[in-house]
Nucleic acid binder design. Structure first.
Lengths: 233, 233
DNA sequence: TTGTAAGTTTTACATCGTAAGGTGCCATCG
DNA sequence: CGATGGCACCTTACGATGTAAAACTTACAA
């Protein structure tokens, strides 16, 4: 009588830009960016594809919104950190921020790819860099040096690992014996490097590059370099 | 009589994987990655879309081929450089290589986005890193430190600028007066930075960040940092 | 009751990647 | 010589995608 042919279907929450963006993030988390289509997104909200267009201009704008959303998530985390940043402390404070940002990004591995395809920077990115800039100014940076510093950090400032190939790009599988042979011919130095690493640490066939370690190593090189320029005055 | 209904149409070169990849690069150069579709690619070769599949397994494999092709172009340029790399000279040699790689990438602005979406690394990338590794070994790096160094350089090693947003991301247009007002409230430090820069160099409304300068600045920070670790022994 | 606006759905279309199968050509072999 | 078979290319067709256009639904004001 009360409509609804199926078994007591729920009234269903109304859509909203907020809900759409949240669902989009979830979809991407589960299946990557390619699985984020308007139809699937709508389905995950129990609606039709075209309904989304009432809350979002088009897919590009949806993606812009998702990018904004993710960076905002970083800002939320980062804003909860409160460390002294005067003088030499700027470095510890910046390091902490950036590592916190990276933690968020690890939950959204598709975010770098998304951010890179945005033509216009999310406002949240400006906010993030403004905060980082504050730390550097507290540390005694001139605006000019700080400016170069932000460029030098680049996307690493937001926690991007900026490796060329993410997972298991070396030592992927199969018998490494024959592969090493082949490799030694084409890439003698890479082969030499691999052999030494295997020698030093035999149980390192898979994922022998620790992403976290490498990220921190690279980050510290940049931060240390900037700090040196800062204190040189 | 000799077939060909239209005005003396040419016999047309036969397709080949090589020709297909070259055409794909050209298409991307002209209209970006999104304009690279199988149909348009075929059309640019005066053929039908499905004909491409005789030379290329599918679009993913085509993109892999294009990626390989571009990195190979980098390798070609880089191989022509021959600088001493013993001892402290490694840095100059590496710098030169990386700047040469960047020059190639500037002609293919879509390449970073493409490389980032590859799941498997082009062989040419291994070759490139092998060459870089050689320089570092000549310079006296341990394999271990060189390994960290390659990670620290990351995609920058291939000339990626790894800025978050490529062109005109600040100071884009319109009257900057009202914008500054608004900005000063939300992003006081960014606003301060901009104001100082405008003050120092008034004719810098557009593109006041010199990509080349910033790239070299960031690169030198990393190279100097690595060199320091190298000579610390 | 009637109108009006907000929110959602239906229908439809152009464009994309590509599966399946067909066509023309040439070299080889009986 | 004609038959055979493989290579290179084309035709047709299908499902997925983003989205324009217009119809429907609900809630509320006049």
């Amino acid at each position: 009588m009360t409509a609804e042919t199926e078994t007591g279907a729920q009234p269903r929450l109304p859509l909203s830009r907020e809900r759409v963006l949240r669902a989009a993030v979830s979809l991407a988390d589960e299946g990557g960016l390619k699985s984020l289509t308007m139809r699937r997104l709508a389905e995950s909200l129990d609606a039709e594809a075209m309904s989304l267009y009432y809350h979002v201009a088009n897919k590009e704008e949806l993606l812009d919104g998702v990018a904004e959303f993710v960076v905002q998530e970083i800002n939320d985390v980062v804003d909860r950190i409160d460390l002294p940043s005067a003088g030499a402390d700027w470095k510890k404070a910046a390091r902490q921020r950036i590592l916190a940002a990276r933690e968020v990004l690890l939950r959204h591995p598709w975010a770098p790819e998304l951010l890179q395809t945005r033509t216009t920077a999310p406002v949240a990115v400006a906010k993030y860099f403004d905060g980082l800039l504050r730390l550097m100014r507290d540390g005694g940076f001139s605006y000019d040096l700080a400016h170069h510093g932000l460029h030098a950090l680049g996307s690493r400032a937001l926690g991007f690992s900026q490796e060329l190939f993410n997972p298991g790009d070396d030592a992927n599988s199969d018998d490494s014996a024959a592969m090493m042979e082949n490799m030694a011919g084409q890439f003698p130095y890479l082969a030499g490097m691999l052999m030494e690493i295997v020698h030093d640490d035999p149980d390192s066939t898979l994922g022998w590059c620790d992403d976290q370690t490498e990220f921190e190593f690279g980050l510290d090189i940049v931060l240390d370099g900037l700090d040196r320029l800062r204190s040189e005055r």
